[in-house]
């Protein structure tokens, strides 16, 4: 980082929930993301990655915001300020259906309904202010916690749609009508 410069993404949405603030990624999220990406928690999302690959993915979050005008939000713990995970829409190819992604970065963040709280806020933003009319999520067959979130958001499994990158996965479709 260049001394004296404060390059950051600006003018971006901030979503507030009871326990969380969801905001665009910032430079100081890096170490938490790197540790997550190196951990066994990535078993359902491509596996553990070396630091340079994690950095590439982290930088691509920023590039996605710049190029598309939307992207992954980082859920921050209101009480501690710690980044807990990423939640957000991504679209890697023009015209492709937007994909919803979510991941909690540490085991310590689990078991309190954090992911569901963040995913609901994401869903309301994506189908509200952002203006999506449909989206998908690809979820590994064994990732039970993630399947539960997709169902809570009103996602329907579409057996006819092949997953793009989670080979042993199911594709959920969302239309913005959460139960």
């Amino acid at each position: 980082m260049i001394q004296g410069l404060r390059p950051q993404l600006i003018g971006l949405p901030v979503l507030e929930t009871e326990r969380l603030i969801l905001r665009a990624p910032i430079v100081s999220d890096w170490h938490a993301f790197r540790d997550y990406r190196a951990s066994a928690r990535t078993a359902f999302t491509g596996g553990a990655k070396e630091e340079h690959e994690a950095a590439e993915q982290f930088a691509s979050f920023f590039g996605h915001w710049v190029l598309r005008g939307f992207g992954r939000l980082i859920a921050e713990d209101r009480a501690t300020g710690a980044p807990l995970g990423h939640f957000g829409p991504m679209q890697w190819q023009d015209g492709a259906q937007v994909e919803m992604t979510w991941s909690l970065w540490t085991a310590a963040a689990e078991g309190r309904g954090i992911a569901t709280e963040a995913a609901r806020a994401l869903h309301e933003w994506a189908f509200g202010p952002l203006g999506l009319t449909s989206a998908r999520a690809e979820i590994h067959a064994d990732n039970a916690a993630s399947h539960a979130i997709a169902r809570r958001l009103g996602g329907q499994i579409s057996p006819d749609i092949q997953p793009r990158w989670v080979a042993q996965g199911a594709v959920y479709l969302f239309t913005g009508t959460a139960p």
């Binding site: 982290f58 930088a59 920023f62 590039g63 710049v66 890697w92």
Partner: peptide
């Protein structure tokens, strides 16, 4: 491509 473009907000 996205990670290269992401250098702008990250690094300046």
């Amino acid at each position: 491509f996205a990670s290269e473009v992401g250098q702008w907000p990250l690094m300046g």
